[in-house]
Design a protein around this nucleic acid. Structure first.
Lengths: 298, 298
DNA sequence: GGGATTGATGCGTCATGAGCATAAATTGTG
DNA sequence: CACAATTTATGCTCATGACGCATCAATCCC
């Protein structure tokens, strides 16, 4: 049976944690302290674990509460933010294209397209939200941007995907690393070396984990970062090796870094254009996408 | 007043849309059809807009319902998924430091410190959330990370700040740009050239806008991006010039890019360590900060 | 035009959530 | 160590909300 509670219960939980007091939280929530106590108790019952450790003088989240708290914050921010956006309606869109773009594509794809597009539309300004794949999808889904350049693999039926290119994952390392002598690498050769990975909020990581699981392989990371560029920084410093999309690695000769393909399996990601099926694009965005397809369609 | 409803209401809404029938959705949700109708009506009242267009023979989401549906799906997936993960038990936390870090500091600061730290603590893993300044502050405040490397200028009394270095903003451009012939640049010389900036969610942007406002100056941008690295990408492609913190620009000789100091005024940012006053650090984090201070304290 | 089906409404019943009063527990101070 | 102050939890009562049943109203198909 799925768990049920009220959004208000989540607000109550967050308020108690933040204010460190049922009394003050009840005031902030405009209910009585016993009513708040009852709500929290009911929430704990729904979830099946205590969320707060409390005495008459002290309140703090339990370990479970600590785990839940970030989720609760995100949900409330997203819930309130989206409903607010619903109420405010769309903002003016003329003279400006707003797009979301995974960072490697921002760096690699866009300059060429922007140049070509700028020749025909010199006065259209661009707002490029270079976000993670998941953030980018959410930005498209919410209408915060007109379209996104993102990874394939979204399950939201309201969004369409048009592929542009396939981009394999490669191993990035310093030129003086022992694995650099191989022309290609097997996954198991990564064992024994400290591995830099991006965290699970990254679409790349989810894709990699999924693909490797099918071959009974998993990434044994030693450093975990949020953005691909930071991976490269740590690799360049000689702290480890990293599995990265090829587009996230230097495309030209680099003084210190080298990449090698990884096989058995070769894991690739498909990058393309994501947009909402229901939302019409501005003429400028239509043209921009046309240029993007002309320049990069595989 | 914040909107309230039950998670069950959201499940109900999703079920009606998916099954295109109150009758079938009620069955699936194990309540009666009138009870379901009442719930949807109440949800619509909370939100202040109809979510479903329906006759006795046909049900479909309204435009508002269409907008809300992706949010509802994500929220339910995340809610159910996270509670499921909670029930499966939390992960081990020993042997791990979790920190937040603005991206330029992640690239520039951390490798040296990690090397030094790794000599003494070879088995401590690192989770580096390289986030924007604002996101980083929130991550620290919420306890999602033990500490952060961030910009000075936070007003949260629960967080302490210990400065490390001062970092000036410089102009980044291609070597063949007309402004490259100057040894130093005045802000007004930027006029007339397309300017790449980071958006207002960036602490850097807020700092710059604030400092320039005092001299009746403002940034006339043509391209707006979310991350500093994308700025460099667009500059390298020759699309414009950009005002960036010096640490975000190449520290060594670059084949195409050059930077120049900007004066009248010189704008600098201070980077340092942010942590919660109330929360004790793990021994490993304590040591890491010690190394960080030893290596970088100005 | 009538019948089958679906969503909406009226009604009664039962459960729930609220606040008030107060108990119980905790902590600080003398 | 005892007591006072303060906070969270519980008992109680009452008002309200949610449920299912019965049925109305609307839609659509034959």
């Amino acid at each position: 049976m799925s768990i049920n509670c009220e959004i208000f219960d989540l607000r109550a939980f967050q308020a108690v944690v933040d204010l460190e007091s049922f009394h003050r939280a009840a005031e902030a929530l405009h209910i009585s302290q016993p009513a708040l106590t009852r709500r929290i108790q009911k929430l704990e019952q729904s979830i099946g674990a205590p969320l707060l450790d409390r005495t008459t003088r002290h309140v703090a989240p339990t370990a479970t509460g600590q785990e839940l708290l970030p989720l609760v914050r995100r949900m409330l921010e997203e819930f309130d933010g989206s409903l607010f956006a619903l109420k405010e309606g769309g903002s003016q869109r003329r003279g400006l294209i707003t797009m979301a773009c995974v960072p490697t594509a921002a760096f690699y794809f866009l300059p060429t397209v922007i140049k070509t597009f700028g020749n025909d539309y010199p006065h259209i300004r661009l707002r490029i939200r270079d976000l993670t794949a998941n953030e980018g999808l959410q930005a498209v889904a919410r209408g915060e941007v007109e379209f996104g350049i993102n990874l394939m693999g979204n399950s939201d039926p309201d969004l369409s995907f048009e592929p542009l290119i396939d981009d394999p994952f490669v191993l990035a390392m310093r030129k003086d690393h022992p694995l650099a002598e191989f022309d290609q690498i097997h996954w198991r050769q990564l064992d024994g070396y400290p591995l830099v990975v991006v965290d699970r909020s990254s679409g790349n990581r989810a894709l990699l984990d999924g693909a490797l699981a099918k071959h009974n392989l998993r990434l044994n990371w030693f450093y975990e970062v949020t953005h691909l560029n930071t991976s490269l920084g740590l690799v360049e410093a000689g702290l480890g090796i990293s599995v990265l999309p090829r587009l996230a690695t230097p495309q030209e000769e680099h003084p210190y870094l080298v990449t090698r393909p990884i096989i058995d399996p070769v894991v690739t990601r498909t990058i393309g254009i994501v947009r909402r099926r229901s939302a019409p694009l501005s003429p400028a965005a239509e043209k921009f996408i046309q240029v993007l397809l002309n320049v990069w369609k595989r």
